[in-house]
């Protein structure tokens, strides 16, 4: 007679990603590289912000960018225009980057020649939340053209974020969006989050964003 048996498994399936994220962080720390994971909807302005940051920081930092996308190389092609090495990760159907794919990508970069890595996550406000990549900071980008409810509708995306960029500030009035309200809602959700208003098209507010991200000059400056 076959025998019934109960097996205790006690395995958290998200731990595998967390362990890889810690390994990535350790690799980055050993090479003295700062890193940033950038989250936000498609069209919020993540790529434009990455471009503006590279433009301002490339004289002080040796920067690489990693662009996550489902299928296209549009983001990587745009970032390349700033003269920084950029690696495109096409996730296929996957709605987020994970620590494994970032670990693999780090191996293909010459880490001895880098001070800063900017990672643009897949345009999604739910799934990346469960998958830390092992970066030092997380930034969320919300744009006013996404309407007045972007912060309250996605409160948990701020859980591990230290900075919120409210982008397309020049369009707030036309859109009828109160940016101060978005800011106060973000602060209600996470009182220590730093909120910066930006216009990634013109570069307005990007210096404030760089301050908020605490991107001090690196060792090679």
């Amino acid at each position: 007679m076959p025998e019934k048996k109960e097996i205790t498994v006690e395995e958290n399936v998200l731990d595998a990603n967390r362990r890889l994220a810690l390994a990535n962080l350790d690799t980055l720390n050993r090479k003295h590289i700062r890193s940033l994971d950038i989250l936000g909807s498609i069209g919020s302005g993540k790529t434009s912000i990455v471009k503006q940051c590279i433009r301002r920081l490339k004289k002080d930092y040796r920067i690489a960018a990693i662009a996550g996308d489902l299928t296209t190389t549009i983001d990587a092609d745009r970032i390349k225009e700033e003269g920084a090495p950029v690696l495109q990760i096409n996730t296929g159907g996957q709605c987020h980057l994970d620590a494994a794919v970032i670990g693999k990508t780090l191996k293909s970069l010459n880490l001895d020649d880098l001070d800063l890595i900017l990672i643009e996550n897949v345009g999604n406000l739910i799934c990346p939340g469960s998958f830390p990549l092992g970066t030092h900071d997380r930034m969320v980008v919300v744009s006013v053209t996404e309407g007045p409810y972007m912060v309250v509708k996605h409160p948990y995306i701020f859980m591990d974020a230290s900075v919120l960029a409210i982008n397309k500030m020049d369009l707030a009035e036309i859109m009828g969006v109160d940016m101060n309200r978005l800011k106060s809602e973000a602060l209600q959700i996470k009182p220590d989050i730093k909120v910066v208003f930006t216009n990634a098209k013109t570069g307005e507010g990007i210096e404030n964003l760089i301050d908020a991200l605490n991107l001090k000059p690196p060792r090679h400056a």
Partner: peptide, 25 residues
Amino acid sequence: CGSSRIEWIQGRDAVVRKMQILKPD
């Protein structure tokens, strides 16, 4: 107290606790 210095101690996991199997003789 309103502090942001918090840690999530529960609610962020997906755990396979246990299972019942049939073993052959």
